[in-house]
Simulated assay, not measured.
Amino acid sequence: MAGLRIAVFASGQGTNFQALADAAKQERLDGASLELLVCDKPEAPVVERAGRAGVDTFLFRPKEYASREAYESEIVAELERRDIGLIVLAGYMRIITPVLVEPYYGRMINVHPSLLPAFPGVNGMKQALDYGVKVTGVTVHYVDGGLDSGPIIAQRAIEVLDGDTEATLAPRVHAAEQELLPWVVQRIAAGAVSLDGRTVTVR
């Protein structure tokens, strides 16, 4: 799958977008290229990161549309126009609908700050700390329309240290995300990831 064209969806700081942009610039994505940033917050710092990386943007404000399906239809048209082969959700804080999920199932991945299926949804790190786990981590998974419920591609475990807070745990979680996500994208671009039901094989 050399030449895989990627769209990254993000809503905030864009640190995972930056990790992918850096990996692409350093030719660590097996020929894949970042073609588009999709962002629902035009003022978000990730938009500036895209500009510095020379990546085109599709910016929108959800309140200007009648429904989620309405703006997702525009997004899908843009993705098709650009021949996007992989969508990476990297801190994209919108609920997505079948309009986007169905045409890209098996070609859309998400990074989540917990060891799924534990602690899905928002505030995964806080959920883990509140529960008192000794090990947490990050997960990259396919998106299936449920709440962080798609088939798992790869995970990295992180020890929770005595006295850890969100502030002390977050840097280790983010570092793991920024290492794992480009690795998964590279394996997908290399044609080394296969999906069979809920079973994902990474060669």
Rank of each mutant, 00 (worst) to 15 (best):
L4W: 11
R5S: 09
I6R: 01
F9N: 00
A10K: 05
S11I: 01
S11D: 00
Q13F: 13
T15I: 05
Q18D: 09
L20F: 03
D22C: 06
A23R: 01
Q26L: 15
R28D: 02
R28W: 03
L34S: 03
L37A: 00
P42M: 05
E43D: 15
A44L: 03
A44W: 00
P45G: 06
G51N: 14
G54N: 06
G54P: 11
V55C: 02
D56K: 09
T57N: 04
T57G: 03
F58H: 11
F60Y: 05
K63N: 13
K63L: 09
E64L: 08
E64N: 04
Y65G: 00
Y65F: 15
A70P: 08
Y71I: 03
E72R: 02
S73A: 15
E74F: 07
V76F: 03
E78Y: 04
E80N: 15
G85C: 11
G85D: 05
L86P: 05
L86T: 01
I87S: 01
A90V: 01
A90Q: 00
Y92I: 01
Y92H: 02
M93K: 07
I96K: 01
T97G: 03
P98M: 09
P98N: 08
L100D: 00
E102M: 14
Y104I: 08
Y105W: 15
Y105G: 13
G106M: 14
N110G: 10
S114M: 00
L116R: 08
A118Q: 14
F119C: 09
G121C: 10
G124V: 06
L129N: 08
G132V: 14
V133D: 05
G137F: 06
T139V: 11
V140D: 06
H141Q: 14
G145L: 02
G146A: 14
L147A: 14
D148Y: 01
D148M: 04
Q155T: 14
R156Q: 15
A157L: 14
L161Q: 15
L161K: 15
D164L: 08
T165A: 06
A167P: 07
R172C: 09
V173F: 03
A175H: 11
A176C: 10
E177C: 00
E179Y: 06
L180D: 13
P182D: 01
W183T: 10
V184M: 07
V185R: 02
R187M: 12
A189F: 11
A189H: 07
G191V: 06
A192I: 12
V193M: 11
T199A: 13
V200W: 05
T201R: 12
T201Q: 02
V202I: 11
R203I: 11
R203M: 10
